[in-house]
């Protein structure tokens, strides 16, 4: 005689369950933040970018015979272009969200509680890692500025993000001066080595626009990362509370 079925769905293994919880929290927090980040960028960053493109394309010339008005008609709203930007911003932030929640899960398994409030700190650390530290060497570029080879910059960018992220983990969870010493070296090393720089300055875009663009890009990034951290922490805490508590053997 077969015993009566008491459970309709087969319980998932702890690892599968954990994977789906990380995926759910990370993707939802990331996509929601991505949408807000995209709106912030379209509102505050995109006009500066479009303005700079007028100089990149040669429609306007900086230091020509006459002074150029700082107020230009930037054309109508480009739906295809801007919707692609919304889509890709959501993808980028979904990626950030997954990485952030994966690390939150690892840290929680080591006994560190993660809440929305803690999440704010995680978001700040993510911002330092993925935006501010790389920007210290390679400021967010407006189109049409002079820059070194893109592959070299990508390698330096990735190396800086990896080193800074690892360093911040060591600052937060390392115990003692050995860990903190390594963290200091990791934070400084990419900038002591130095980011790849162009051989000459040949950008046609006015420095005022470049500076405004860098400030706007970093500012919008800071807002978005704060939100991402909050949301990721909140969703993760909510998922953790729903999960069965692992039983001590």
């Amino acid at each position: 005689m077969t015993p009566p079925m008491t459970c309709v769905t087969r319980p998932a293994s702890p690892a599968t369950d954990m994977f789906s919880r990380i995926l759910t929290s990370g993707l939802i927090a990331g996509a929601a933040t991505g949408l807000i980040a995209a709106l912030l960028q379209l509102w505050f960053v995109q006009p500066v970018l479009l303005h700079a493109e007028l100089y990149e394309s040669g429609q306007l010339a900086h230091f020509g015979a006459e002074a150029v008005s700082a107020h230009q008609d930037l054309g109508p709203f480009e739906w295809t272009r801007n919707m692609l930007s919304v889509l890709f911003t959501m993808m980028v932030y979904a990626g950030y969200g997954l990485m952030l929640v994966a690390l939150m899960a690892l840290s929680e398994a080591q006994g560190n509680a993660v809440t929305a409030r803690q999440g704010l700190l995680w978001g700040l650390a993510g911002y330092l890692t993925m935006q501010l530290a790389p920007a210290f060497g390679l400021a967010p570029e407006v189109p049409g500025v002079a820059a070194a080879d893109v592959q070299l910059r990508a390698i330096w960018w990735l190396g800086t993000a990896a080193a800074t992220g690892l360093a911040l983990w060591l600052v937060a969870f390392g115990k003692g001066w050995a860990a903190w010493g390594v963290a200091i070296v990791l934070i400084l090393a990419p900038h002591v080595i130095g980011a790849p720089q162009p051989d000459s300055y040949a950008g046609p875009v006015p420095p005022e626009l470049s500076a405004e663009f860098a400030g706007r890009a970093l500012g919008a990034g800071a807002m978005a990362w704060a939100l991402l951290g909050l949301l990721a922490g909140w969703f993760w805490q909510r998922e953790s509370q729903r999960a069965p508590v692992p039983q001590a053997a």
Partner: peptide, 26 residues
């Protein structure tokens, strides 16, 4: 085996997988 120990083992691989997917997207 402690509670933390048990969950640590079941967290590592899912976390690495999710981290890799996130990195791939970026």
């Amino acid at each position: 085996m402690t509670a933390a120990g048990a969950s640590r083992a079941s967290v590592l691989f899912p976390a690495i997988a999710a981290f890799a997917i996130g990195f791939g997207l970026i």
